[in-house]
């Protein structure tokens, strides 16, 4: 089994921060706002390993820090402290020591991100095919016919009508927009895919199809994924292992079936007990 990502002590603070931030927030204080300086401790001391082809779930309610974690890993924001090593074939990359060009290169070639809000992942002013083309062009694919062909394949794979590939994604339904986002994220066949609440807000039947698609992709391409969600059902379906977060901290982690059948932390027990 090959490790693909090793995250250690990842923390994020919004605000100026103080020496007491980390020791005065968290689950036992039932807040992530530092009472001394008013900063928000969005994430503290997140550590985990991710292996090739594995799906890791990060579960928590809004404000628990789960999205902050993936946004740091995708360089949407730089963390306050902590490290993350990406094992890229033979190379090890310290994510937060990279320069902006190296970060952009990883984002474009090796990582894929699917956001809850398609607005963040797609450029609504260019066609669905153009969105995929952008990612391919970033990877120096400079042949127009090849780009067309790859975009068509990806959209077909994610079950977007290829007849609509030259339409603007803003004319698409929410589920369709997510499919285009997934196609775009997959364009460079990244070994790591980050999924941030990708099914939230979609109709149940559409959710189911997106989840099926994610599983199929995982088994076809052996893509490692981090799935961030507040939905126990999504975790149950997708993740082999799960981290449960609250107030920016991991309060419990384990095999997904163990988290669901033998939760240890009071919060997780309550969460599992209240699931439908």
């Amino acid at each position: 089994m090959d490790k693909i990502l090793e995250v250690k002590g990842l923390s994020q603070v919004y605000g100026k921060g103080c020496d007491l931030c980390f020791t005065s927030t968290g689950a036992e204080f039932e807040t992530n706002i530092c009472p001394h300086c008013g900063s928000i401790v969005a994430l503290h001391d997140l550590s985990f390993d991710l292996y090739k082809g594995e799906i890791l779930g990060i579960m928590g309610e809004s404000g628990s820090g789960k999205s902050t974690a993936v946004k740091c890993l995708y360089f949407d924001q730089m963390p306050y402290s902590g490290s993350a090593i990406f094992f890229d074939d033979t190379e090890q990359k310290q994510l937060f020591n990279l320069n902006p060009a190296q970060r952009r290169s990883l984002r474009n070639h090796r990582f894929g991100m699917v956001y809850q809000n398609p607005n963040l992942g797609l450029n609504f002013d260019i066609s669905a095919g153009g969105n995929i083309a952008e990612r391919l062009l970033m990877s120096q694919v400079m042949n127009y016919s090849e780009i067309r062909e790859r975009a068509r394949e990806l959209l077909a794979r994610t079950e977007v009508l290829t007849a609509r590939m030259d339409e603007l994604p803003k004319n698409f339904s929410g589920g369709m927009q997510q499919r285009v986002q997934i196609a775009k994220a997959l364009a460079t066949r990244p070994p790591l895919l980050l999924l941030d609440e990708v099914t939230t807000g979609l109709d149940l039947s559409v959710q189911a199809k997106i989840l099926d698609l994610i599983l199929e992709i995982q088994s076809e391409l052996n893509t490692a994924m981090i799935v961030v969600t507040h939905d126990l059902g999504v975790i149950r379906l997708l993740a082999g292992r799960t981290l449960v977060m609250k107030y920016g901290r991991v309060i419990e982690s384990g095999l997904t079936d163990q988290i669901l059948e033998d939760p240890q932390h009071a919060y997780t027990q309550q969460l599992v007990a209240s699931a439908l």
Partner: peptide
């Protein structure tokens, strides 16, 4: 790449 996308959209 975004400039290239512009070219791509032109051809489309």
């Amino acid at each position: 790449s975004r400039l290239l996308v512009k070219l791509y959209e032109d051809i489309v």
